[in-house]
Amino acid sequence: MKRTHLPLNGLRVLDAAARHLSFTRAADELAVTPAAVGQQIRALEDLLGVVLFRRTPKGLELTPETEAGLHALRAGFLEFEEAVRAMQAGQSSSALTIAAPRDITAKWLQPRLAAYAASQSDLKFLLVAADEALDFTEANLDLALRLSDTLGDNEGLKLGEATFVTVEAANGGPDQRIAWPGCPNEDEPAIIRVADAGLAIEAAANGFGRAIVPSLLAQADIATGRVRQVGEVIPTTLSYWLIAPLPQWRQKKVKALVEALIA
């Protein structure tokens, strides 16, 4: 019989009934009714073309056909249990691979990872630079952090509101524009152009002028006084998202990490 045709549920019922020599006790173990156990056994007998149990005045007895296959069946279930344990061990491993843009990694992610690692001494992190075309499976990623207007095909969580702020040096600066790829009015004249919003904040702090950057990215520098906010918050469609495909998003270690990052 092909692997895809194996009656796994029926074989599980057979294993329980053979151990207990009782449909009632097997039903209790499997949290079903005795009638359901009997139905599964009859269906399995019809499929295999053999009799699996005999009813005697003393109760159920195994037939020679059942005894012939029982050892291999139980060995198979033990292998299944080992496979499940191995997969669970992988999910609970202490290694986490995270992809994120360099600026949000430096300004937001690393401080939170350090705080989380301090309470989880066995944790190890691998941080890689985000790439829009990055493949979660190929890169063996657990989680990614992206500046985007959508989740795409992934599961995820938005970090804060979708807003930008204008920042300048703490003691003020010239009314000159600092530009970075993806910033509002990117094509307008600028005193300096830098690679990302994090470097734009640094340029503002160093007195080049004013930079419009994601609010989340600027929070820490505004709070510590390295830069100051100028004007009102600017609504935008872009937000930072923690994202992962559904299988990765369901992992216990990823759930725990996400909870720690947003705490």
Rank of each mutant, 00 (worst) to 15 (best):
M1V: 09
N9I: 06
G10R: 02
G10C: 05
A17F: 02
R19I: 01
L21W: 02
T24I: 09
T24F: 02
R25C: 04
A27D: 01
A27R: 00
L30M: 08
P34D: 06
A35K: 10
G38H: 02
I41D: 02
A43L: 10
D46T: 00
V51T: 13
F53T: 01
R55P: 12
T56C: 07
T56Q: 11
P57T: 11
K58R: 11
L60T: 03
P64L: 06
T66K: 02
H71Q: 11
L73V: 12
A75S: 13
A75E: 14
E81V: 11
R85M: 14
A86F: 13
M87K: 15
Q88M: 15
Q88K: 14
A95V: 14
I98E: 07
T105V: 13
L109F: 06
P111M: 01
A114H: 07
A115P: 00
A129N: 08
E132M: 06
L134D: 14
T137N: 12
A139P: 10
N140T: 14
N140E: 15
L141G: 11
L143S: 02
L147T: 05
S148W: 00
G152I: 13
G156M: 03
G156F: 00
K158P: 12
K158S: 12
G160Y: 02
T163M: 09
F164I: 06
F164L: 11
F164T: 07
V167P: 03
E168D: 07
A170I: 04
N171G: 09
G172W: 01
D175Q: 09
I178M: 13
I178L: 13
P181N: 10
P181H: 11
P184Q: 12
D187L: 13
A190L: 10
I191K: 13
I192E: 14
D196M: 06
A200E: 11
I201Y: 03
E202D: 15
S215D: 13
L216W: 01
L217K: 08
D221V: 04
D221W: 05
R228M: 08
Q229H: 06
E232R: 01
V233S: 14
S239F: 01
Y240V: 04
W241M: 01
W241I: 05
P247A: 08
Q251A: 09
E259V: 09
A260I: 00
A260R: 05
L261Q: 09
A263I: 03
